[in-house]
């Protein structure tokens, strides 16, 4: 299964590197959202400082929706899903591969957004262990849930509107937990943030488990 996951993740990442949709569209979109938050909340009033962790993760979630839609748009073309089924790859491996490719893209995006909030919002990064310990399970959870809900909408005419409606309520606990953990890290009280990081790890484990178990059913569509 892991070998299949590496194959699928490699295929998706190669596609992204060659088409440059992530770099050319999703990343600029994320930076644009950061700038728009700056316009809306006025950098001089101190609201941006207080809201930085939340704005960072809201931007990640919006970008994740785009990344998920992109990851499954390439599977929507006629016959691609049948071809994928005929390859005899383990469904759990396909799921893990899709999730890993989305996670890698999101981690790159988060690094770029991190630089963005330091430069644009004047955030002062602190508590690196907690920041990384939050970002990794949060990204794994977002990618796992995104892969599962993303494949649900494959082949539907309304998939662009359906994916955010299905995915964002599910990811709400991730936003809540990662924002609280980042706040704790930036406030210099990491002990308050680690339980939230634990919740994120639990979320990621639940969704990785559900994805491995249920993906086969969703791929067998005729």
């Amino acid at each position: 299964m892991l070998r299949d996951a590496v194959l699928v993740a490699g295929k998706d990442l190669r596609l992204e590197v060659r088409t440059r949709v992530g770099l050319g569209q999703v990343l600029p979109f994320a930076v644009l959202v950061l700038v728009l938050f700056g316009f809306a909340l006025d950098p001089d009033r101190g609201i941006l400082d207080a809201a930085t962790p939340g704005l960072f993760w809201v931007t990640v979630l919006f970008s994740a929706v785009l990344a998920v839609q992109r990851a499954f748009a390439v599977e929507s073309a006629e016959g691609v899903r049948d071809a994928l089924r005929l390859t005899s790859l383990a469904p759990g491996g396909v799921f893990l591969g899709k999730a890993a490719a989305i996670a890698v893209q999101l981690l790159v995006l988060e690094v770029a957004l991190g630089v963005g909030v330091v430069v644009l919002y004047g955030a002062d990064p602190a508590g690196w262990a907690l920041l990384v310990g939050t970002a990794v399970p949060a990204t794994a959870g977002i990618a796992a849930a995104g892969s599962l809900y993303g494949v649900l909408a494959v082949g539907l005419r309304v998939r662009e509107t359906l994916v955010p409606l299905l995915l964002l309520p599910v990811l709400a606990p991730v936003l809540l937990a990662s924002t609280r953990a980042f706040e704790a890290a930036l406030d210099g009280s990491p002990a308050d943030g680690w339980p939230w990081a634990g919740l994120l790890a639990l979320f990621a484990v639940v969704y990785l488990g559900c994805g491995i178990g249920l993906y086969g059913t969703l791929l067998e569509e005729s």
Binding site: L148, L152, L156, L162, L166, L214, T217, E220, S222
Partner: peptide
């Protein structure tokens, strides 16, 4: 919304069960 968007019965049942 997912049920309403799914075109045929078997796909609707499969997706909504998940």
């Amino acid at each position: 919304a997912l049920r309403a968007a799914s075109p045929d019965r078997s796909s609707r049942a499969r997706r909504s069960a998940v």
